[in-house]
Design a protein around this nucleic acid. Structure first.
Length: 257
DNA sequence: ATGGCAGTGCCTCACTGA
């Protein structure tokens, strides 16, 4: 079983990339972020995904945010948004697939430490932590996948002298990431890859991708029962090389069985 | 080679992203 996450930065623009990637990887489950379209537009894409064998459930809004799950297998107990947290922004969707609880999230960016959006980020993170803790108690097999907008360590940025202490790398954000780890989740990518310069996002500007100037901010955190089945976790940079790419690359975990 | 983004929408600018 393969489970992946991908911030597509507009599903309208990236639909061909997503369709091709699903067919090439034969991925079982793909969580999407930043669809940037409302559910009326999402509904019009159900058929395109069905034609290649994927079910499509979504939590969309116009212009901003929006998340979805694509799956070859039935999706059960679909939950939209973070329970017990009022949020106009559509950032979370969850489902159980083949006995695995999959929570797909588009974490708040935060803009800068001085921004009101940063305060929103910290409150949003606190609510997500509570939600994940409750889900962990109910599901032994669980993955929290998505665009975290958090680089967990200095080596997850192309230049720590620029990024340390800044948004995406601040102590409170990393504390929240580590709170998730403390719950029993594992940063699955680092279980299999300890190399430096491993990123999942590259700025469109300044030839950042070619210069390998990126950040590792898209993650698959997995429970112990999932890690026991995991054989690999990779960032697939191939879609970032296509014409009109998303600025993020997909991250995919492979499980045996 | 000195590069100067990309997406959306009340669309030729403003806003957001990371």
């Amino acid at each position: 079983m393969k489970i992946a996450t991908w911030n597509v930065n507009s599903l309208k623009v990236r639909l061909p990339h997503v369709l091709d990637w699903l067919q090439q990887t034969n991925c079982d489950v793909l969580g999407l972020q930043e669809l940037k379209q409302d559910n009326a537009a999402n509904e019009k894409m159900i058929e395109a995904f069905a034609e290649i064998g994927y079910k499509f459930v979504f939590n969309g809004q116009k212009t901003y945010n929006g998340v979805a799950l694509l799956s070859k297998h039935p999706m059960e107990n679909i939950v939209f948004d973070t329970p017990n947290y009022e949020d106009e922004q559509k950032r979370v969707i969850a489902a159980t697939i083949n006995g695995v609880r999959v929570i797909c999230a588009y974490f708040v960016n935060g803009e800068s430490l001085e921004s009101p959006k940063y305060q929103y980020k910290l409150l949003w993170l606190a609510a997500l932590e509570k939600y994940v803790a409750a889900e962990m108690a109910m599901h032994e097999k669980l993955v929290l996948i998505g665009d975290y907008n958090i680089a967990p360590e200095p080596r997850d940025t192309y230049d720590a002298s620029i990024w340390e202490g800044q948004v995406l790398c601040s102590e409170p954000e990393r504390k929240s990431f580590n709170n998730l780890i403390a719950m029993g989740l594992t940063d699955s990518f680092r279980k299999f890859n300890q190399e430096d310069r491993q990123y999942s996002w590259w700025d469109y500007r300044n030839l950042a991708f070619r210069k390998k100037q990126g950040l590792r901010i898209d993650h698959i955190l997995a429970s112990q029962k999932i890690m026991e089945l995991a054989t690999n976790c990779v960032v697939d940079t191939a879609p970032r090389k296509l014409e009109r790419p998303s600025d993020h690359a997909p991250v995919m975990i492979t499980l045996q069985g």
